[in-house]
Design a protein around this nucleic acid. Sequence first.
DNA 1: TATTGTTATACTCTATAACTATA
DNA 2: TATAGTTATAGAGTATAACAATA
Lengths: 166, 166
Amino acid sequence: MPTQPPPPLDPVQLGAYFALIEVAGLLRHAVEQQLREAGDLSYVQFHLLARLGYSQTGSQRMTDLADDVVYSRSGLTYQAGLLERGRPDHAGARPPTTSAASTATITDAGRELLATVMPGHAEVIEQLLLQKLPRADAQALADLLAPVRDHMRSTPPRSAKPRRRR
Amino acid sequence: MPTQPPPPLDPVQLGAYFALIEVAGLLRHAVEQQLREAGDLSYVQFHLLARLGYSQTGSQRMTDLADDVVYSRSGLTYQAGLLERGRPDHAGARPPTTSAASTATITDAGRELLATVMPGHAEVIEQLLLQKLPRADAQALADLLAPVRDHMRSTPPRSAKPRRRR
DNA sequence: TATTGTTATACTCTATAACTATA
DNA sequence: TATAGTTATAGAGTATAACAATA
């Protein structure tokens, strides 16, 4: 036989991959619809608010947010801008840039918005995902995914891609 | 503290949800990059080719494809159009519409394209996901997700949304 | 000069609604 | 008239590259 390509992924692993992508895709689609209707939020905007809202300080560096939430700095600027502009003083206001590394801070209105959206959000998760994933299974799923997530995170983050030399 | 909102999702379940979304998101992002570079394919286009290529007949009804792959019929038409137009006779050519329910069929060139892209695709999956998910774990993951996927699929499919009355 | 963030811009994708064709 | 698919169109999101500012 001529150069047989390296043994393809085994079906079990391939199945896990497809299931993962499909389930997450459908879930995210449903969630985005709910967020849009309940608070006119994109998933990224929600994610932004959630990160800030559940953090100790309510603040985070822009670049760190970008790494966690979006794939490009400009994308973050765009989404943060929507939050600020769309609901003036309502969401992710940023203090006047004092240093090169500016931080985003959630406002009270941002927390309100988050709170407005959360119940419906939880309900979608419940209906679509958790109903078929009892606590023990949820735990198992989280345990399976934890090392994967850590591994992926350790891969050079998107926003740190070396910039083109001038 | 005042009116405590209804008991939020328990942290374990919430953690599973976030891990799922994040892992799938990062994975998909990486995969899309690879597909773009290796074959100038969007993920949807790849998914389309894969569905057709791995099906018995190499054909499928457009609506069924839409339900599986995309969220709207027009989206499918658009992506299928790209496959046809972008590489004439190369990808997802469709026989002249004979009936209202036209079917998409993969061409030899489409199979080639799929084969071209597959090895790199597998490698990304391997590196990013499976390296931290040995076979047994992959099996476990698939088993956990299977009922969820079935449940989600049974929910009224996107393309079947009742059309507005005229 | 190196790092961080923003703007300008161009492009891809997606969905809704209107339209065509078929049964 | 009901169903399947396409086209027109408009909007959202994203990324790259150029730019400004800070250290």
